[in-house]
Amino acid sequence: MTLEELLLQKRDAIKARWLQAVLESYPPDSRRFFKKQKDQFANPVGHAFSTELENLLQEIIEPSDPERLRASLDRIVRIRAVQEFAPSQGLSFLFLLKPIVREVVTDAGRDEDLQREMEALSTRIDGAVLAALDVYMTCREKLYILRADQMKNQVSALLRRAGLISEVPSWDAASEEGSENHPLNST
């Protein structure tokens, strides 16, 4: 049996253990709530973890489309990025998958092929961590941008009125003079 087959066979159990491990990062009350409340609108965080960890697992076992992997990571990381976590804690959920998979493999016996495939899988998880880091940074940067915009937006109309905001002329206006649709090319 290949590693892929083995993991697909055990997928549900692996996902359940992974989810449990991820939820361990929350205090007992929150953990219980995230796990028990099944309504996706009453419990958006728990629901996102449950569905997206499943999708992630699928993409890690049988990679199909990097965009799908990124989308699932985005759903989870976007949440973790605004919760009470240090960055390392926020992203650690991906590492939690390794010991779970390793245990499944060990239980299946010391097949050398499996061990080799395990290496490859481990590398895929590392790849996912790097992708998650990108998402995390995008989220945090977005927070700071929103923070900076906050002040400006509060009085946006006033600033415009007072002529304090000078808006850059549009590409179109610039292109009237030149052939290319960009001001730098218009000379």
Binding site: S25, P27, S30, E84, F85, S92, L96
Partner: peptide
């Protein structure tokens, strides 16, 4: 990894 995610959230 398990230790990494232990955070000192307030008890419940």
């Amino acid at each position: 990894p398990e230790e990494l995610v232990q955070i000192d959230h307030s008890p419940s």
